[in-house]
């Protein structure tokens, strides 16, 4: 329960973070809220030699507008996203999803960027951001690039971010869409056993594969005029849920159908 030795660096700007990443390369890890990384380090499942703390970088924190997008700084704490009047007005799905992350202590420390960069399919925010087609801005030594949500999550705890990039912000569309986030847990405060986000005509699922995924068959069925209960039956198509102590793969498939149906109905009712 004690991490392997490491060096701690606190940086004040994105440029300093990039310089540090360039210097230490694969030995370095970015630290924001620490709620995914620190537990892994305590188990020595992650053994970075250098921790670069970006949580004090002012430019990475806060909520702003840019065109028809809402821009959430990567180091913005969950509690800020949850309670921000701007997010609540323009992106209810995001504020609501943030309110279901962990417990109040976790939400006061954990950050949206840390959550998505960890790339855990059972986390809440990646699922909703995928449904919203969020855009992820990453900055490296050679400039910035934008990664679409559909391309961001690439494998178990793996994202499209390269080791020398810093996630700067996450952009979500301002367009008001019907929405829902359904999260099934066995006990009330937990990671999702399965989750389902609905945003407009998009449906995304958590804990149904290595990465959060879109329920494309549900989406197409709805576009073709299927009713909600029929469409929701397709929720587990092309999924590969795991079996563990909480739920078997079959049960997760069942939950995906149930949550998707509930989510579609709730979203419709909000229309």
């Amino acid at each position: 329960m004690i991490p392997a030795p490491f060096t701690y660096l606190r940086v004040g700007s994105v440029q300093e973070a990039l310089d540090a990443l360039a210097e230490y390369g694969d030995d370095a890890k970015l630290l924001a809220g620490g709620h995914s990384l620190i537990p892994l380090m305590k188990y020595r499942l992650a053994t970075p030699k250098v921790l670069i703390d970006i949580s004090g970088i002012a430019e990475l924190s806060g909520v702003t507008f840019e065109g028809d997008s809402l821009v959430i700084g990567a180091a913005t704490r969950h509690a800020i996203v949850e309670h921000s009047p701007v997010v609540k007005e323009h992106c209810r799905l995001l504020a609501y999803t943030a309110s279901l992350v962990g417990d109040p202590q976790v939400r006061n420390r954990g950050t949206i960027g840390g959550s998505v960069a960890h790339g855990d399919s059972a986390s809440d925010l990646p699922v909703s951001l995928l449904a919203m087609d969020a855009q992820f801005t990453a900055q490296g030594r050679n400039g910035t690039r934008t990664i679409a949500a559909a391309d961001f999550f690439v494998g178990f705890w793996q994202t499209a971010l390269t080791p020398n990039e810093v996630l700067i912000n996450i952009k979500v569309p301002l367009a008001k869409q019907r929405w829902s986030y359904q999260k099934f847990t066995i006990r009330s405060q937990d990671w999702a056993t399965v989750s389902s986000a609905v945003y407009g005509n998009a449906v995304a699922l958590g804990a149904m594969a290595d990465i959060p995924i879109r329920a494309r068959d549900v989406e197409s069925a709805l576009l073709q005029g299927a009713d909600i209960s029929q469409a929701a039956l397709l929720a587990d198509h092309n999924t590969s849920p795991s079996s563990d102590t909480r739920a078997s793969s079959d049960y997760r498939r069942h939950l995906a159908r149930v949550l998707t149906e509930d989510g579609l109905r709730e979203a419709l009712a909000r229309n």
């Binding site: 417990d103 066995i186 006990r187 009330s188 405060q189 937990d190 990671w191 102590t245 909480r246």
Partner: peptide
């Protein structure tokens, strides 16, 4: 053991 921490071993909390 496959439930050797409080992630996998499900102790409830007040809302449960």
């Amino acid at each position: 053991p496959i439930t050797s921490n409080l992630i996998d071993y499900l102790i409830p909390s007040a809302p449960d």
